[in-house]
């Protein structure tokens, strides 16, 4: 039976929901972080369980397999050292040429990376995001790029003291200015593809005259001020006219495997 107290409770709950929905973004983020603190004990338990499972799995690997992996990593390390030497030489040449032209020097962003672990993934099907185990206590703030050695992942959005949410490439709240590595260097805007296309994004607003072919690489253009130039995003799958023929739209296969990532790198300013 409906009572007066039920009407009061309904009014309070509906009013609270509407109040929370109308809060400024920063206050709403703080409220979410505060309420999410209820899950900190479970996050700690999940992290400990994950670590225990990894250690147990490591104990079950045979000695031969460990030696094989060790040798493979040693070879990769040697190759990467050689590439680093060459890259260092290119960076010095780049800096020398910039000085000659009077351009501002760029600081290499490879020295500003910090490793983070993915703790929770997005439970709803209409957003693309996950949570990492770095927060404001470690110096994380909103708008920091997040990437992996394979390519771009996204940017930080809601930052708590111990955890931060990363909005992924392919989410509507993470639009990235991208450049196709073709002759003309055409630029466009990366946006979401479809709710089931987990590894695909759309590169929209390419000029009608752009020469974009499947297989071409797509990287960040550096425009917008958030993502540095040159971070790989993916490769072109196909191109088609869009917007009633006003521009071209390309589907891009993401380079970073967003949905199986366990560790990412956060780029400090």
């Amino acid at each position: 039976m409906w009572k007066r107290s039920h009407s009061v409770a309904l009014g309070l709950l509906a009013g609270l929901s509407l109040l929370l929905l109308s809060l400024p973004e920063e206050l709403a983020a703080r409220f979410k972080v505060a309420f999410g603190a209820l899950y900190l004990p479970l996050l700690g338990l999940a992290g400990a369980a994950h670590q225990a499972a990894q250690e147990t799995a490591g104990l079950m690997v045979s000695r031969r397999e460990l030696l094989r992996q060790n040798e493979q990593l040693r070879r990769e390390n040697a190759q990467l050292r050689l590439e680093t030497l060459q890259a260092a030489e290119w960076a010095r040449e780049n800096a020398r040429l910039r000085r000659l032209l009077g351009w501002q020097e760029q600081s290499p962003w490879r020295d500003r990376l910090r490793l983070a672990r993915v703790t929770l993934r997005e439970p709803t099907p209409w957003w693309r995001s996950f949570t990492i185990d770095l927060g404001s206590r470690q110096g994380v703030r909103t708008g920091l790029p997040v990437l992996t050695p394979e390519g771009l992942v996204g940017r930080t959005s809601e930052v708590g003291p111990f955890h931060a949410r990363v909005v992924l490439v392919g989410d509507a709240n993470c639009r990235v200015s991208a450049q196709v590595l073709n002759v003309t260097g055409d630029t466009g805007l990366i946006g979401p593809a479809g709710p089931l296309d987990r590894d695909l994004v759309l590169l929209s607003y390419l000029p009608r005259t752009a020469v974009v072919r499947p297989g071409q690489a797509v990287v960040t253009s550096g425009l917008g001020g958030i993502f540095p130039k040159g971070i790989p995003i993916g490769t072109v799958v196909d191109v088609r006219p869009a917007g009633d023929g006003l521009y071209l739209e390309a589907r891009v296969q993401l380079a970073a495997p967003l949905h199986v990532l366990e560790e990412v790198w956060v780029l400090w300013p």
Partner: peptide, 28 residues
């Protein structure tokens, strides 16, 4: 019903990218 809508909805919103409070109303 009120408690589950309020706390369950807030729990879902705190772990997702939803604006806080958006899941409580449909549940309610």
């Amino acid at each position: 019903v009120f408690l589950l809508a309020a706390l369950g909805g807030l729990a879902m919103d705190s772990l997702s990218a939803n604006p806080v409070g958006v899941t409580s109303l449909p549940l309610l």
